[in-house]
Design a protein around this nucleic acid. Structure first.
Lengths: 238, 238
DNA sequence: GAGCTTGAGTACGATAGCGTACGAATGAAC
DNA sequence: GTTCATTCGTACGCTATCGTACTCAAGCTC
């Protein structure tokens, strides 16, 4: 029996919602609801990791930062996963930064508390390690995709990954932010966005993208999208 | 007390060599020595993961493969780590491929046996999870590096990472193989190699690179090299 | 030592993306 | 309704890398 009974953030999150009741009940007193506000940095590069976050909805970007300030997204986290998984591996901080791309809500819990449960070796450990595998495949495909595919393809992939984790077809995103995620110029995003819009896949207007034709986007996007999705399905199904 | 007493492959490997004797002795009867032969694929993309490999020396590339046959390396493994860590996360196979880049030797062990020990939650779990963190940082930096840095910088990084894991200054590598690792054309590697050679950093001749001036290479390489190294040191020190 | 295979150097036109910059349009603020 | 900051569209010269292809040299085989 699982903990999925209502639609609280805890139960919209796939990891928390898949826990057996016994484990969930041990964690529940320590879970605090949090709002995930647009553009909020919930984990600063290099800072001590104090909380793990389990989104109920919304999308969070995990970003690698360079010394000169340029950034590249290495993965996204939605209700299927968690932020702060690095800390479960036994380290206290990480150079990666976590930023809210699509606002939502979720639950957070102190890392120490979560680690205690993780180290019991039960369902939480199993679920988080499987998620970790999926996330690792996402990073690894991103590494390949960054090397081999065009800005247009990568923008399409990003939009699809976001769309998968959100209700509705509209996303609040500026070209500037997408440029930071994709690691390209703002003007580069504009060019790609114009192209995708010309094909009728999306519609853009001042910080708002609408996915108009998801099916067509899926046909246009590079293989990386499906590859990552397949690994998520494989690792997280049960 | 640790298991590092002689110079068998088991004890040249950092993970095995850091295990407390009790844990090491439980694993020891199941460790088989293996030779890591140049260019051998020790884990095929999509195949069931049957063994974990702990190199005593040599370098193994973990590679993402695309449908069209193009490949990009996402990370390297040497005596500091292991191949097959994916399986500790609870999955049976992965699309990544593992190939020997610098020949050497090591120990292997059946995944089931290793998983049993991993699930006891002792030092092996701690060591492998910390290594996993370091490896994840390597992939993540590679994703960023692939997006932001030139072929020359990335070649320098690759050579330094290899050099760190090998005794001596000579590596047996063709431009063709480096092209597969860096995800560029063979001619692109040649161009970069010529440039590094002109600066006196390396010397190249028919499948053999020699690192001539490591210090200068370290000054030339992009920040990604030091960033990954710092995370390895941080995660694996004890 | 002749022939063959493998690996390296080079060339060249094509193209994607860069850095930069400027202006237009939208939406919010007053 | 006017002002202003934000966001987007576009342009232009520049560079890195691509795709392809040809040649040359080294080392192995017979």
């Amino acid at each position: 029996m699982s903990a999925s009974q209502d639609s609280s953030p805890a139960n919209r999150n796939r990891i928390l919602g898949s826990l057996p009741l016994e484990e969930y009940n041990r964690l529940a007193p320590h879970l605090e609801p949090v709002e995930l506000e647009l553009r909020k940095i919930i984990q600063e590069s290099g800072d001590a990791i104090r909380y793990a976050y389990f989104p109920g909805n919304g999308v969070i970007s995990i970003v690698a930062c360079m010394r000169d300030g340029s950034t590249v997204e290495i993965g996204v986290v939605g209700p299927e996963g968690m932020v702060g998984i690095h800390a479960l591996l036994g380290i206290e901080s990480t150079p990666n930064e976590s930023m809210v791309q699509v606002p939502g809500d979720g639950m957070r819990i102190r890392i120490g508390t979560l680690l205690d449960e993780f180290r019991r070796g039960g369902a939480l450990q199993d679920l988080t390690l499987r998620y970790l595998y999926a996330f690792m495949m996402q990073i690894s495909q991103t590494a390949a995709c960054n090397r081999l595919h065009t800005v247009e393809e990568r923008l399409a992939r990003w939009l699809l990954m976001c769309h998968d984790r959100v209700e509705g077809d509209e996303l609040a995103l500026t070209h500037d932010f997408l440029a930071m995620m994709l690691g390209v110029r703002r003007a580069g995003v504009t060019g790609a966005a114009v192209a995708l819009q010309a094909e009728g896949y999306i519609r853009y207007s001042r910080g708002h993208v609408t996915v108009m034709d998801r099916k067509a986007l899926e046909e246009f996007v590079c293989e990386c999208y499906a590859a990552v999705k397949a690994e998520f399905d494989r690792a997280l199904m049960h």
